[in-house]
């Protein structure tokens, strides 16, 4: 399932335009960033190209060499970050780590990078250096947004649980101990909840609060803390 970095050459038109996307599977272009140099692993920066961020992948296409391009699925992007420390890298950039098939071999990249043959499937790091560093924060946010659109297919939180709920049910459930579990599960019904916004989720705060309240009100008779709470 993990694909790592791969070559990408499918362009619209006579090979000069935008990447051809998998529209049949709902892939959409989210952002185009011209003037971006790409750095693979420890290699030297490649000539400037254009970055295309889609709902499924990151595509970089060279402006100069029309047959040169790379792509990586968001599923393979383990981590992305804004790097501005000149000691970390001379140019401000988006730093990404890419999950590869065999992570054990990644330490050998030091020797690989000296070779002329480039094995993309072994590349574990990619830097994207925009000519305009002020774009870094917005690029980072677009990366976040798109990464959240691509949870792992075998995620524990699956919709097949078929939690059924309504607002009324939620109110009722909150009155009972058993309901606390159900109301917690409401969150799984909202898979598109992006990371930045989820923290303002008042429902959750309320759920947690009620959880605590219920802790005091509904203790289980068989539990060990009988001695602290005294007789009934």
């Amino acid at each position: 399932m993990v694909m790592g970095l791969r070559r990408f050459t499918e362009r619209i038109g006579e090979g000069a335009g935008e990447p051809i996307l998998d529209a049949d599977n709902g892939e959409e272009l989210m952002h185009v960033q011209p003037g971006v140099a790409i750095v693979l692993g420890n290699r030297a920066p490649e000539s400037v190209g254009t970055l295309y961020i889609t709902t499924k992948q990151v595509v970089w296409l060279s402006d100069v060499e029309k047959e040169r391009g790379y792509a990586v699925n968001f599923l393979s992007v383990s981590l992305h970050a804004v790097s501005r420390d000149p000691e970390a890298y001379p140019s401000p950039c988006i730093y990404t780590q890419i999950e590869t098939e065999d992570d054990d071999d990644e330490d050998s990249e030091g020797s690989d990078s000296e070779c002329n043959t480039l094995d993309l499937s072994k590349i574990t790091e990619m830097r994207l250096v925009p000519s305009d560093p002020s774009q870094l924060d917005s690029l980072f946010n677009i990366f976040c947004e798109c990464a959240e659109l691509n949870p792992d297919p075998n995620e524990e939180i699956e919709e097949e649980h078929n939690w059924i709920f309504s607002a009324d049910q939620m109110e009722d459930d909150n009155a009972a101990t058993d309901g606390v579990d159900d109301s917690e599960c409401l969150l799984s019904e909202n898979p598109a909840n992006p990371i930045g916004y989820s923290n303002g989720n008042h429902d959750l705060a309320r759920t947690v609060l009620e959880l605590q309240i219920n802790d005091q009100r509904f203790e289980d008779a068989e539990e060990m803390d009988r001695d602290t709470n005294g007789g009934h």
Binding site: S78, R84, D85, E87, A88, E125, F140, A147, D152
Partner: peptide
């Protein structure tokens, strides 16, 4: 990991 020194903000995929 010297190159990872002080990145300002960082997004980590839950699965990793």
């Amino acid at each position: 990991y010297p190159h990872m020194l002080s990145v300002r903000n960082c997004f980590i995929r839950g699965s990793v």
